[in-house]
Design a protein around this nucleic acid. Structure first.
Ligand SMILES: [Mn+2]
Ligand SMILES: [Mn+2]
Ligand SMILES: [Zn+2]
Ligand SMILES: [Zn+2]
Lengths: 130, 130
DNA sequence: TCGATAATAGTAATTATTACTGATAATCTA
DNA sequence: TAGATTATCAGTAATAATTACTATTATCGA
């Protein structure tokens, strides 16, 4: 992975933000520094950087992908009105969890989305390992 | 909401499936019964039916939206290989939860995605109610 | 310094979804 | 039941996010 001024600018802007921006939000920021950068370059670098583990691509709902310079394991809270995404501190324990999150973020907590991830029996069989 | 043969066929096919299909998967099924139906009609009806609370639009990650005829509150497990989504029984309690899910579904559980939903302070202020 | 090639800008293509339009058919009213 | 009303339809165009392509440029190890 070569070091280019485009890649540096993209990573630098993402690191400065705590807003978990989408590719085109980031493009708008970076363009101020490098006016000739293309949106494709932003997409390509976000892909490369997340593949290399430098950043993470958030696996959230919504039509646009979001990116995060913090690769640590942490959770997020998203506003169902404006789509804003904020960080949550790690551990938390379900029952009093909503109240704690509300207190920590100022959000009115309406619920949470939980989706388990794994390998289904059919796919597990294909690769031997179950 | 008028009763049309297109709407009936779409709802009927969705109800028969436990696979949480996307709009175009459903379109493929329904087309066998109504060969002249258009994809737009499938999209429009899935939207109408979920707005009326007859079905639910799943708020999962991934590029395509998924739909579920079961409007009850339940969780899902998705395969990171093939994208398949299966149902989970409701309640579950975190620690021994993964093991229980694995036992119940046959999946090799690798993790879970948790996203809290709510109204951020800025949006809450706009509508008075916090 | 130089050559191999990773990365870029600009553009075209793709994919999922929504919007538009004139025709059709479900439901309502007399 | 007939006729009026209008939700819904099929077909198609438009939009939005993302990815792919291509000729050119810039990085970096020898
Ligand atoms: Mn974060
Ligand atoms: Mn379900
Ligand atoms: Zn908000
Ligand atoms: Zn699978």
């Amino acid at each position: 992975m070569r070091k280019t001024k485009q890649r540096e600018a993209i990573l630098d802007e993402l690191t400065k933000l705590c807003t978990h921006p989408s590719a085109d939000e980031l493009y708008g920021r970076v363009k101020k520094r490098l006016p000739r950068i293309s949106l494709g370059t932003v997409y390509r670098n976000l892909e490369t950087l997340s593949r290399e583990g430098v950043i993470q691509r958030l696996d959230t709902a919504g039509s646009q992908k979001r990116f995060d310079a913090d690769t640590g394991d942490h959770r997020h809270i998203r506003c169902i009105r404006c789509g804003r995404i904020d960080d949550l501190a790690a551990g938390a324990d379900r029952a009093r969890c909503d109240a704690r999150v509300a207190k920590g973020t100022g959000y009115r907590v309406l619920g949470r989305r939980v989706e388990y991830l794994g390998v289904c029996p059919a796919c597990g069989r294909k690769t031997g390992r179950r």
